[in-house]
Design a protein around this nucleic acid. Structure first.
Lengths: 372, 372
DNA sequence: CAGGAACGCTGATGCGCATAAGCGGAGGAT
DNA sequence: ATCCTCCGCTTATGCGCATCAGCGTTCCTG
């Protein structure tokens, strides 16, 4: 009578023996399933349940999923750390959405944390193995440096949904994206309506789809409102914008700025406040991605990306792909029925936009390049 | 030659066929294991790996764990939402630690999100199935309402580590905790040294271990410094403290306050500022759990719980339990060797403590209840 | 009163994998 | 030449469960 350590787990066969039935019967009772026609006698049922309760039975999910085919595990792959110290604010809302939807749909989540490459970035394929396949399907999140892994994955027969638009030529990648084009265009429209004639675009310089969408909105709206698409107003990458550049833009008549990401926004605010300019009086500002909530000082006008909803929608889409047709997952048929979703993006009014400052004497608003 | 959809998941037997070897050989190669004596010929090995890569093989975690092997999957179970909207700041650092350690040790993480009960809280056992067993072991995080699930889990033979001290009678639960007692006592000591004679304790009213630890530190330090342990200074639960209560405590001579959690801290700050009192001039304040970083206005004195380290340590402990002895996991032998870890907690100086205000005329610092 | 159809259960099977046991051959020791 | 030992692989087995095809009974129908 040593200690009970190693108290063996109870199996269905233990219950079966205790209740005087077969293991198959135990399985049926516990699952409420019916073999073919109908049922288990209530009396037997009770005996089995009693035995299970008494022996403290707890099913083995691994065996369950082995026998059943699927494991109700959804993968979450991020190209960067899932819980990064800094960009916490960026990923967090997506993950909240993913988690909620997973919870609602009865899935557990598997986070691929083991796959870090030497550069700290994660890789889908490690030693040529696709660990993602451990899950029934996978949600991909974040921005990859290298598109080839995604291409390769798209060529496999594995169901996945990317958060963010991805166009892989010849493949039919499922994604949940946000519509950046419309609200970017709308932002330009509003600024134009306020009287701005020269709107500078401070871009990230990346060529990802979501970046192209914003540019597209900018250019379309410029044309639609009859504004001059002066290429000098389009600065990209603008990450290391300097005071000189700022002055240059203002000399071109720029009275409004669009910033493509948070670090550029930050940069611009630093610069402007260092020279004593403030929105909305001295210039207008619209940011094209959610500003970090860490800066409570300003309610910046700009896009509000429905991140939580995107995460949730991605999970729901994946769930649908998994249940609809068990095999439609990867290289689906023609048409991307429910496999592409573009969510609208709000344009928050904020407090950083207003009419352009009235032209100071001697400083004509019309573009007149001072030098260069 | 229709589309390739429907290509089933590859199994080891597929690889075996492609490489012209047996399934067992594939298993050995992929696991780097050696049958009995030594090895697989490098040539064979290469062929197998090539076939696996080409066919896009990825192991089935369920089958792996069923077969008695391991998954390299660690579970993360939280009794509440892992990514809660509000308490994000609370859980996040733990998860960062968990993620980093998992990454370092080459584990992937399973987040048990599917186990939500009707009340929104998660349950380990659902329909009597312990899904945690999908993983090799599990880290538990958060505070359970109901201790019975933990008791039951402790009775099973499944390796897990709890973040936060847990005493389950008769069981030997592995945990990584923080030492709240010492810094709480130290906080009282510092306040006493500054001249405070009456230190109020605003508690949460819970009876979890981590709460008891703080109380313990408070009481010990009161005794050690010869302060009167007036029970009226010990308010718990204090979550709905009111202005009256605040005045009552001050009438008792209280010049310093200890707050047990963030919501109580918040409450106290509301109250005091509503009556025009401010730390450290009018009173001193030490909080016994990290204040939410959302409040940049004050650098509150108080405990700093090493959450990130706790998360990482829990994963490392679990890793050790899994590799040391495959069976020491659950109800270990006697002695909790490396299975209990208590990390020290810093006491940050902050700016909310100082000497007690000099007694105003007519308002003696000695306790003299004015009324009631 | 024969034929059939549920009913209530059992036995067999296989999910994909790890692993123990087996086995032919090559090489060394005696 | 004989025996033994390792090597490099194969075959067989079972993890715990869900599920399917029976199979003896009972009850109903014509």
């Amino acid at each position: 009578m040593a200690d009970d350590r190693g108290t063996p787990r109870r199996r269905q066969s233990d219950i079966a023996r205790a209740a005087g039935v077969s293991q198959a019967t135990v399985s049926m009772v516990l699952n409420g399933r019916t073999g073919r026609g109908a049922a288990i006698r209530p009396e037997t049922r009770e005996r089995v349940l009693a035995a299970a309760a008494e022996l403290g039975y707890a099913g083995n999910p691994a065996a369950r999923s082995l026998a059943g085919g699927r494991n109700r595990l959804l993968g979450v792959f991020t190209f960067e750390s899932v819980f990064p110290a800094e960009s916490a604010d960026f990923y967090h809302p997506f993950l909240v959405g993913v988690e909620r939807a997973a919870e609602a749909e009865g899935y557990d989540l598997i986070l691929f944390t083991s796959a870090a490459g030497p550069d700290g970035r994660r890789r889908i394929y490690r030693d040529n193995f696709n660990r993602l396949r451990m899950a029934d399907g996978c949600v991909l999140l974040g921005y990859e440096r290298d598109r080839s892994e995604l291409d390769r994955l798209a060529g496999e027969d594995f169901p996945f949904v990317v958060i963010g638009r991805r166009d892989v030529p010849g493949r039919d990648v499922a994604y949940v994206a946000a519509d950046y084009t419309t609200p970017t265009a709308e932002a330009v429209g509003r600024l134009a309506a306020l009287g701005h004639r020269a709107i500078a675009y401070l871009g990230s310089g990346l060529d990802a789809e979501h970046v192209l969408d914003r540019e597209e909105g900018y250019r379309q709206a410029l044309a639609a409102h009859g504004l001059d698409p002066d290429p000098r107003l389009y600065v990209s990458p603008a990450r290391s914008l300097r005071v000189d550049d700022l002055h240059g833009l203002r000399a071109l008549g720029a009275t409004a700025f669009l910033t493509e990401d948070d670090s550029i926004l930050r940069r611009l605010l630093e610069l402007t406040s260092s020279v004593g300019l403030h929105a909305p009086d001295d210039f207008s500002l619209v940011t094209l991605v959610d500003p970090s909530p860490l800066r409570p000082d300003a309610d910046v006008s700009g896009l509000r990306v429905p991140r939580l909803e995107m995460g949730a929608a991605a999970v729901r889409m994946l769930g649908a792909m998994l249940s609809d047709s068990p095999e439609m997952g990867a290289a689906g048929a023609d048409g991307a029925d429910g496999r592409r979703l573009v969510l609208p993006c709000d344009l928050a009014a904020g407090t950083t936009t207003g009419p352009p400052p009235s032209p100071r004497p001697g400083s004509p608003p019309s573009p007149r390049p001072s030098r260069q």
